[in-house]
């Protein structure tokens, strides 16, 4: 078997990582939404202002990441992941077990990021552990928003704005590229990735988050059929198209020969149009109360146990 060409392997590696990361995150998010109830504030539901606030963080945080020295940056990232995992695991495991699990995962990530990156196998083990961390954070955050009242309308608009943002910050002001380079090789890399040979392929936490949001918001709003459509759009426009585009054009290859594709630029418009179609076809979105009224959804928060109740 011959050695793959330098274009083929990175492309298929990127495709595999993107598809696997997207499918895994979406599947776990759906499972979590159907069976786990997160705590929510006494008063308050996600609204348009929250979308603006979240978008504000998305704009400001990367700038902070660029300005902050590495150590405080890693501390911020570590706290972010810890919070997300604690929020997500506490309803499932209970407080004590949650802190033990999160502590082990975080500690392992730091240790592996500092000691195991000298070999390809070390890189691969690190990526697997880091992927668990990132997927867990994406699942928890997506559910926090949707179970907090985020609607498909919010996700669609959010995706549309992110499409513009992603394109601008990839082509005009290439912060995305700089950030991707900065994180790689350090703990708490906010990406799902894997390595084969000299090639690393990643898909960002933000991308996985918006895909998961889109799918579970569609599930909440219009049911399983709409969610399946959302999943297809997410995989095609969010994973397949961005991974394959470099085969068609070299516009996404930077001076370091890194391939940076603004995935949201393809996903955002498609997601928005799909939302408009769903809205026109099925009418108003279902509320969280309507979703919880379905027979195949667990309405009450589960008694913390060590396993999700999978039907």
């Amino acid at each position: 078997m011959g050695t793959p060409t330098s274009t083929t392997l990175p492309t298929f590696l990127a495709l595999g990582v993107a598809i696997a990361g997207t499918l895994l995150t979406m599947a776990l998010s759906v499972l979590y939404l159907r069976h786990v109830r997160m705590e929510r504030p006494a008063i308050g539901t996600f609204n348009g202002v929250d979308v603006v606030v979240v978008f504000g963080f998305i704009v400001v945080l990367p700038l902070l990441y660029l300005v902050l020295p590495l150590t405080p940056l890693l501390v911020v990232l570590g706290l972010t992941f810890t919070s997300a995992l604690v929020f997500g695991l506490r309803p499932v495991l209970g407080p004590a077990a949650t802190w033990i699990v999160v502590g082990v995962v975080i500690a392992a990530n730091i240790w592996m990021g500092r000691t195991m990156l000298g070999t390809v196998v070390g890189w691969q083990l690190f990526w697997i552990e880091n992927d668990l961390l990132v997927v867990g954070a994406a699942v928890a955050t997506a559910n926090l928003y949707v179970q907090g009242g985020m609607r498909l309308r919010h996700v669609a608009w959010f995706g549309l704005v992110l499409a513009v943002y992603d394109a601008v910050f990839t082509f005009v002001w290439p912060i995305t590229n700089t950030l991707a380079q900065r994180f790689i090789g350090w703990p708490f890399d906010p990406s799902v990735g894997f390595r084969i040979g000299i090639y690393n392929a990643t898909i960002g936490l933000g991308d996985l988050l918006i895909y998961s949001l889109f799918v579970i918001a569609a599930l909440k709003a219009y049911g399983p059929r709409a969610a399946r459509g959302a999943a297809v759009i997410s995989v095609l426009c969010g994973a397949v198209v961005p991974a394959l585009l470099p085969l068609i054009t070299d516009v996404f290859i930077d001076a370091r020969t890194d391939v940076i594709v603004p995935a949201q630029a393809a996903f955002g418009p498609a997601a928005f149009l799909y939302y408009r179609w769903l809205r026109r076809t099925y009418g108003a979105e279902r509320t969280m109360a309507g979703f919880l009224g379905r027979a195949d959804v667990d309405r009450q928060a589960p008694t913390p146990s060590f396993a999700l109740s999978v039907p």
Partner: peptide, 23 residues
């Protein structure tokens, strides 16, 4: 507007969150 938020919360979730009365 806080009243409107409470009404919207009930509309979305069917009930307020735990410890609502402490508000």
């Amino acid at each position: 507007r806080l009243v409107a938020d409470a009404v919207a919360t009930v509309a979305e979730f069917g009930e307020l969150g735990l410890e609502a009365r402490e508000v």
